[in-house]
Amino acid sequence: MNAAPPTTSALAQRPEHSEESPLSVHAMTVAYDRKPVLWDIDYDAPSEALVAIVGPNGAGKSTMIKACLGLIPKASGTVEFWGQAHKRARSRIGYVPQRESVDWDFPVSALDVVCMGRYRKIGWCRPVSRAHKRVALECLERVGMADFAKRQISQLSGGQQQRVFLARALAQESDLYFMDEPFAGVDAATERAIIAVLRDLRAEGKTVIVVHHDLQTVPEYFDHALLLNMRVVAAGPVEHVFTQENLHKTYGGRLTLLSEAAEAIARRDRGG
């Protein structure tokens, strides 16, 4: 071994891998059972931004988030957060998994779930103190769910459950958030509540990376977009990358989706 592997600082010197960037993905490939799901992903997320990851089913959107968080192994590539490995940046990263990924019959209250966002701060083998519960309750208040704190989670509607998940992410007090389809199957009130919280987070200087399904609302809700279909098709500010051509490349010939997107683009052009 004569050539030393590139160190963190060497990567950080490269313009696209700055310590400013909350997330830098470099040459990441992920495979399930030797079948690649993500190929050679390069991506740098801006700070203080709401980023949408869009792409068709099976494009690897959730996989990308999980691989960044170290929940599934990478075949190759590096992921850095502010120029640091995930292990060292862990407490600055929040995560909202898909709502269907957990058992909502689990015997816990909404407040218990939100407290889970504090577990890292509380530390191993220690009980949840009153101060941490108070923070959790404030987070429930921010998503309009304080009245439901004592409810068992199976007694909440789908939208309310999603808001509990969001409150748990807030309780993590992170600087970078990954959210996997927080808008899927929620009511209008919840959608408004979520987007208000996302905008608050951005105003506090945080970055939120959201897997999003509804192409129509991308220009309205997000600053940046990452168009994904096994590879990165395009990434950057929404007004640059959210074009007919890029969407066509991402989605192939799925006409209904494309016409929806065309509408959205037209609306954005009129509005802008």
């Binding site: 170290g70 929940l71 957990v102 816990v108 889970m116 577990y119 509380i122 083998c125 993590q172």
Partner: peptide
Amino acid sequence: VLFFKELRISAFDPGISTAQGI
């Protein structure tokens, strides 16, 4: 008793548990 919290989060939501370092 010691691992009450860790057992709870890892059973309810293994994803966020692991992402937080548990």
